[in-house]
Design a binder for these strands. Structure first.
Lengths: 155, 155
DNA sequence: GGCACATGGTTTTATGATGCAACCACACAA
DNA sequence: TTGTGTGGTTGCATCATAAAACCATGTGCC
């Protein structure tokens, strides 16, 4: 079978993330959800995507524990899609993507919005990687280590 | 024309990033490149992907200014693919993806490696979003503002 | 209850993207 | 010059996506 490659069995955490949210639409759906969208129709009209694709993506993200279907909220009998903690945990990914575009996009004038600190109205600081003790790290300051095997009793 | 949706004309910087590196393979290629891989064959055998797809992705990333083709380096007449500053700038995105998986993956035991600070050998700290003045920000502490129009003279 | 319309999808069908294998071009060595 | 490895491209089968039509249920109104 040819079947599009799945990274689900891969041991690399980056690949595993991409397996869940690495398609063309999921992160945009999450972006809208973070800004308060909840209903099928809201996502569909805001993103302008085909309904069948939206349907498939929502289902997939529910399966991955990123969204949950909540029964109501505004009284109507319809359902809503709300982010789980796991879903809200993607926020740094979105910020990183946004900042990368802000810094390196070939046509920065095409970018319509900037993310600001609500209190001061000033742009948020660039994400930076730090060690446990607070030292600023570059990619070269890091390395990969095998995951420590958690010790457990016989079984 | 049906044509897979392109976000190139989109004003959202997240969509613009995804247009460049939002496909299934690009970020994994960049991941390997950050760890020193440079040759076509290295990427191909390490990632186990089809050569035509690799070829297309490399070309696309060269077009996007993420990779450059450098003439040599080890004496042979072959070419190499090396990351540009824009390409190296994706590092926070990769770290964010990795940390998301480390924190929320359903099967954390399947994750093989952890990213550590080379000096101390300790895991790097979680990326955190901060305001210009250093306050820690949650998603709710932020908002989107229209991009300020840079002032320019008549034309 | 019965009707019209909105919401929230699924189905159908066409096309683009992906995966695999085969093939090709060139460099390098003998 | 023949052989082998690297670095791709080409062809073809299959999968995923997109757009539009269709359908089921909810909701408002009488």
């Amino acid at each position: 079978m040819v079947k599009r490659t799945s990274f689900e069995g891969d041991a690399c955490p980056i690949a595993r993330s991409l397996d869940a949210i690495g398609d063309w639409w999921s992160l945009l759906i999450i972006r809208e959800a973070l800004f308060g969208l909840r209903r099928f129709g809201e996502f569909q009209s805001k993103l302008g995507m085909a309904k069948n694709i939206l349907s498939a993506r929502l289902r997939s993200m529910v399966d991955h524990g990123i969204l949950t279907m909540a029964p109501a909220s505004d009284g109507s009998a319809y359902q809503e899609y709300v982010l789980t903690p796991k879903g809200r945990g993607t926020f740094p990914i979105l910020v990183a993507l946004r900042q990368w575009s802000e810094e390196f996009d070939d046509r920065p004038e095409a970018i319509a919005t900037i993310l600001v600190d609500r209190e001061k109205g000033r742009p948020v600081k660039k994400l930076e990687m730090r060690a446990e003790d607070g030292r600023l790290l570059t990619p070269a300051d890091t390395m990969l280590k095998p995951r420590p095997v958690p010790r457990r009793r016989s079984a």
